[in-house]
Design a protein around this nucleic acid. Sequence first.
RNA 1: GGACCGCUAGCUCAAUGGUAGAGCAACGGACUCUUAAUCCGUAGGUUGAAGGUUCAAGUCCUUCGCGGUUCACCA
Length: 491
Amino acid sequence: MKRNPLIEQRIEKVKELKDAGVNPYPYKFFKQYDIKYLLDNFEQFNETTQISTAGRIMFMRLMGKATFMHIADASAKMQIYCRVNELGKEIFEQIKKLDIGDIIGVTGVLFKTHSNEKTILVNKFELLSKSIRPLPEKFHGLKDTETRYRQRYVDLIMNDKVKELFYNRSKIIETIRKFLNSKNFLEVETPMMQTIPGGAAARPFITHHNTLDMDLYLRIAPELYLKRLLVGGFEKVYEINRNFRNEGISTKHNPEFTMLELYSAYDDYFDMMNICEQIFHEATKVVNNSDDVIYQGNNISLKPPFGRQTYFGALDKALNTDTRKLSETELKECCKKNHIELSANMSRIEMINELFEKLVEPTLIQPTFIYDYPIELSPLTKAHRSDNRLVERFELYVAATELANAYSELNDPLEQYNRFLEQQKIKEQTKTDEIFDKIDFDFLRALEYGMPPAGGLGIGIDRLVMLLTGAESIREVILFPQLRYEEFDDF
RNA sequence: GGACCGCUAGCUCAAUGGUAGAGCAACGGACUCUUAAUCCGUAGGUUGAAGGUUCAAGUCCUUCGCGGUUCACCA
């Protein structure tokens, strides 16, 4: 138990308050107005109208018999003015004992200072919560990334831009919901804990249910459950929720991340392109009030229609050849030329994909749908209607990052079974975890009842928020990003 | 997991291998229109941790911890 002396001082103050019969943590305060409302509607109040509001003290400028403070609430911050004339000596002394960080309620009238700043002249105040831990410095704020992520609450107190970002995140998701609801999509919730983690290829987190005595997996995707709902007769469904992938952490990856997945019966992947474009466009209009967004120095236009290139069209252009006609040796040479490390028994398709990631992805700055993927990469996608080496799939790239993924969904149960078996074979060869080998037979059974033709679309919400808010790291758009366990030795 | 960078007072930052400092915050005092208020004074440190080299280590070396960037992984 070694406490910071600054905290010890404040704990002393709390004791003094309690001894004087003041509850430093009272139950209720009638907060009549948000601060932003007072600022925006300043003119409607005259200098005798009593108003009340509440907030956290962020600045204090104490003088002998008068004090200016800034208090901040969720909406804005505002100056308050306390004067011994209005409050009397005793109350004014109490005001002087307040600390930066304390949450107070104030009652008073509005006026403008000589420098024209909208201010509350306080005639009554109440301590609503005593802060015993000092806030960061008022001018430079909190900069340390580790503290910002670990103690997001302090980050939010100190950095208005962070608060604004999370308001925008909420607005983006709200916009998506409104848009989809207006198109008759039904929002649903499907299991986070699954017995067979499917719908993507990623290592899952494992947990255990005691009563059932069985292992469960946190979902890596909701896909297979949402498709079951198409079988059940819902024609347009979506889910915005967390996926969990037990993979590396980076500026673009958090172990739990938010995904929008939607499915629309009787549509194909081209329809998904349209919906995808509209969602991106609506969201950027709401957040940035514009069709454009500046991301990492690039001016990016999110006005539909987005660019469209086929997977091999883009790759052939980059390589200046017909990639599919290259022999295995030629492919290997091509990889070497482009500084791609070749691991032992790398398949053709793996080399092709490496080339794509290395040569094409970094060039995709403006929104671009890359479509018609090689069939080997997509076990849940319908084969291309006119080329059986391809599937009807697209990924949306913006700023060299994958932001969305969509298919004409495979609904042929026999074909789906074969594709699962193919995947199983590949997994066996590459010797990844055995859990991937499990085939979801209930999903196949559902398909056997008949799933309507459908388009499906997934959008990485965190990455969309990054794009629209200019965030360089996914941790900036997740309130509490995953960090290592922190040891406490000062409590 | 690899490479590189960082970790100094509550916060933001200084300190050629040679006595650990400043601003803000805190504490005491002055001040009834301040705006990062001002003025006078006081206190505050196991320099992320543990070893090592050295007459001498915040600084150099090793290991470890935490964070960041990047690569790998993530079809």
